[in-house]
Nucleic acid binder design. Structure first.
Lengths: 184, 184
DNA sequence: TTCTTTTTAGTACCAGGTCTCAATACCTAG
DNA sequence: CTAGGTATTGAGACCTGGTACTAAAAAGAA
């Protein structure tokens, strides 16, 4: 009875530990838990957790792609339609990394970024800057929801463009923004 | 003469290849270049490029940290001062990953995120959402510039807060925003 | 031809594992 | 008390993708 509990707890803790620091060898883990290396290996097997190198590779790959698309972002979301100087549509699914842990509500930054990059994508110029914007977040967006953003060019005045962006989850408006962007 | 050139070219190509896809074994590389594994190893040694596992680990670690601080961001920038429901100051240096390659101009998303997260940090509640905002980007911000953002609570009306954020590079205003945030 | 650079081959060794077989330890039900 | 199942540990062979080192062959250049 006691040992059963010990095992369960160890395994739970183990998976948490590895979730939040995947770069630990079985040997280090064994020391940390005061058990043998074999026990750790058995635990990993039971839970289907791969070895250190595999974990490292997975993290590296995942994030390598993500960094390319998100941090180095020219664009946030996935572009669905684009007619330059007319309208554009993109979709973005709210992922775990976008929400606050407690509330599961998507951070406004992402919603803004999706809209802002979409607005900029609409303009066909090498350098496009956001000049000003008015935003309204109409309701919180939760984990796993898909935000479809539609940007429409409303007015053009020399190198200044007024773009209206509406973001929806299903039929429901979650965000509207008016962006003035400037081409250089 | 010919072989010298071959070597130089191979090494150049090698480093490019690995820069843009670090997950290749020496054996795969050897096949790709039509040389022996040893030659690839020698090339790596000469150029100080570590082995596959080390490269993978580096990518994973780098990006792991970055993801934690940026993608998983509760906060963008570095918090300098905070007096809840009064004012807050943060600073952010514009990094390579924030700028458009051509123009070296910082993407507005980051400037917004710094301001938005700062505004939210000002409010002491579990769930704080951005309700609406008016933004003005006054001038482009370039690589390596340090943006100091100052958020001040202007008005409070039950659970709604009006916050004014001013971001400066040196003495120059680069962004101003008025945020209405809602606590739940 | 001799010297030098480049390339290839081969061996020993390492980390961090997998996979398999066997030996204990521990608790519990009969 | 004892047989039986679960949990833990140990030991050994083998794997991948290397490092470190030695040696030999190939190809120009002097």
């Amino acid at each position: 009875m006691v040992r059963r509990l010990e095992k369960e707890n160890r395994q739970k803790e183990l998976s948490h530990l590895l979730a939040d620091n995947p770069f630990t060898t079985d040997e280090q883990l064994a020391k940390k838990f005061g058990v043998s290396v074999q026990t750790i290996r058995l635990d990993r097997m039971e839970m289907g957790i791969p070895e250190l190198r595999e974990r490292t590779k997975q993290v590296a790959r995942q994030v390598y792609d993500k960094v390319r698309s998100m941090l180095n972002h020219e664009f946030v979301g996935e572009l669905l339609e684009l007619k330059l100087e007319d309208y554009a549509v993109s979709v973005m699914e709210v992922g775990q990394e976008m929400v606050a842990e407690k509330s599961q509500v998507c951070n406004g930054d992402y919603i803004f970024s999706q809209a802002n990059t979409l607005a900029i994508a609409l303009i066909n110029a090498d350098v496009v800057l956001t000049g000003s914007a008015r935003l309204r977040f109409r309701r919180p967006v939760y984990l796993k929801e898909k935000i479809v953003s539609r940007a429409v060019l409303a007015r053009k005045k020399s190198n200044k463009y007024l773009i209206k962006v509406v973001s929806k989850v299903g039929a429901e408006e979650v965000f509207v923004g008016k962006f003035v962007v400037v081409a250089r």
